[in-house]
Every structure is written in C-alpha cells, then in structure tokens.
C-alpha cells in the first residue's frame, strides 16, 4: 500500500498496533512489526528500566521499525522519555495529555511522534508543536476514552490539520480500515483485534473474554470521575456502576480500579479485573497469528474497495 505513513515510517502497511498497557509487550510488538505493521510496546505506568528491557527484547525479535506508547500521566514519564531518546526508538505514540515539552528532544534523535488525540483543538495544537502525525481516537476504543466517535472525529481532524491522520477506535477488519480511509485517514490503529493473536502474551482468560463478548458488552465506567474507561462488562464494572449510582466520591470509585487491569491481563481474573476492550470486541471470534490478522485486513480492504467500485 502506498501511503505517506508507510514512506515516513518505512513500514509495509499503515497499520499501528494499539499501545495497550500491560497487553502490548515486546512479543506482540515484534510480531506486528514483522508482519509489516507498526508494533508498539506500551510503557503504561512502568519505569524506565522496564521499558529499556522491552526495547532490547523487541530488537532481538525484529529488525523492523517499532514504537513505544507513552502514557503522559505516568509517574515515570520523564525517565521513560529519557530511555526512548537514549535507545533512539523510531516512533512513539502518546496518550493522556500533551507531549509538547518532549518533542524537541525526540526530534533530535529522529523519533517520530504521533499523539493520540480526542479533539480538534488538541490536534491543531499538536500540529503547531511539530508532531509527525495525529492519531484521532474515537470513543469506540477500549481503555481510557474520549467523547467523540471515530466517524465524527476523524473527518473533523483531517480537515483541521495538514498532517497524516491515523484513525483509531472501532476498527478491526478491512471494511473498517477502508471506511477510515474514506473519512480521510491515511492509516489505522488497531488494538482489540491484536489482543486475540497468538503472539499476544497475556492470560488466555482475557483473550477468551474478548472472543465471548457481544456487541453491547464493552461498557463505560468512570464518567463521573472525569476519567471514563471502556472495558468488558463483569463484576468489576457492576461495582463501578453501583458506586457511581450511589454518588460515591471520586477517590472511592477510582480505588476499586487500582491494579484491576493487571489482575485481568496477568492473573486472568476476568470477573474482578478490568478487561479493557473496544466496542468492536463483539466482532472478534478467533485467535490467529498477527501476520494472518494483517493479511486478512488488507485482503478485505482490497475486496471491499473493488466491490464499492462495482
């Protein structure tokens, strides 16, 4: 596929793998990069040494470009950024804020910066600060989410900036990818679909929960705290709903979320853990290698495009 994104990043397909905390380890990132996409290691709230270890490991498994997702609210964000600069990571994506103050240092070592944004104003601000592209992420996504849908957000961001835009949220197959391109995106970021891959090194229960999920199961909790999160409905989300319904304090509500993602990803506790996944989880029915996931997306993208051309 010929795309500005592929040329800029030297990748075969303009498909980013979502930087899912705890889920997106070097195993998954290497598999996606080897399959021609952009594999991404999630730094989450881990420290610099963890991230350095992950980077070293991904480099043992692939010689292709890869990225690191930096969560800007992490207490370790400064040391994670230092590791990224020292290791000259080819690409970073950022979440939960504005990476502005790091951009100058990242550019010095050639790291490309793609912030995940949920609004036009932030996209415009990021363009002004010199990022390389924008990931416009709709509320269909799993994990921490914004308000706008992918359908509404992507074309508005495309119109507002001159940078390549990557669409994220609700995309898991070739039809979704083509739809995103119709909206003006030049690439897609896919998270939930890659959870259900052979190479994703998480507890099997988590993958099965995604496979068993139906269309309405990826619910949002935490709206009252100002930090909404989308995850699969279970005992934990019900507890969130109960507390929010009772008007519990922000501290009380957020307390039950502490460590919940790790509990689901590592321990496989899909009842009381946080099984973060996007709305498209209902469409995912199998576990397959990353290479097959990407090839199927590209095949379907092409057949759908031919069908539309008639």
């Amino acid at each position: 596929m010929d795309s500005r994104i592929c040329q800029m990043l030297n990748i075969k397909y303009p498909i980013f793998q979502g930087g899912m905390a705890w889920v997106a380890t070097y195993h998954l990132a290497a598999a996606v990069s080897n399959a021609g996409g952009l594999g991404i290691i999630a730094a989450g709230t881990a420290n610099g040494e963890y991230v350095r270890e992950q980077i070293k490991n991904v480099r043992k498994l692939t010689d292709k470009p890869f990225g690191v997702n930096v969560m800007l609210l992490s207490p370790y964000v400064d040391e994670v950024m230092n590791v990224i600069i020292e290791e000259r990571v080819p690409v970073i994506t950022t979440g939960a804020g504005n990476p502005g103050k790091y951009i100058k240092f990242l550019k010095e070592v050639g790291t490309k910066v793609f912030p995940v944004v949920p609004s036009v104003a932030l996209a415009r601000r990021m363009e002004k600060e010199g990022v390389d592209g924008i990931i416009a992420e709709g509320t269909e996504s799993g994990g921490h989410i914004g308000e706008l849908t992918t359908m509404a957000l992507v074309p508005q961001v495309v119109d507002a900036v001159n940078l390549p835009v990557i669409a994220a949220g609700g995309i898991a197959d070739g039809r979704g990818m083509l739809a995103a391109f119709a909206l003006g995106a030049e690439g897609v970021q896919i998270g939930t679909r890659f959870i259900c891959s052979d190479e994703c090194a998480i507890h099997e229960n988590y993958k099965m929960a995604v496979i068993n999920a139906k269309d309405r199961d990826a619910v949002v909790t935490g709206r009252t705290t100002g930090h909404p999160v989308r995850s699969l409905k279970n005992k934990l989300t019900r507890e969130f709903e109960r507390l929010e319904g009772e008007g519990a304090s922000k501290e009380e509500i957020e307390k039950i979320g502490v460590g919940a993602l790790r509990r689901a990803v590592i321990e496989g506790d899909v009842n009381y853990g946080s099984v973060m996944a996007g709305q498209i989880a209902g469409m995912i029915k199998d576990i397959k290698p990353c290479k097959k996931i990407i090839e199927d997306i590209i095949d379907e993208y092409n057949t759908t495009l031919s069908r539309l051309r008639g």
Partner: peptide, 11 residues
C-alpha cells in the same frame, strides 16, 4: 472546564 476545554480556550 476539563483539560480539553482548556486546550481549546488557549488555542
């Protein structure tokens, strides 16, 4: 205001 409102206002 939330953080996104503030970005919009600043712009």
């Amino acid at each position: 205001a939330d953080s996104l409102d503030i970005v919009e206002l600043i712009m």
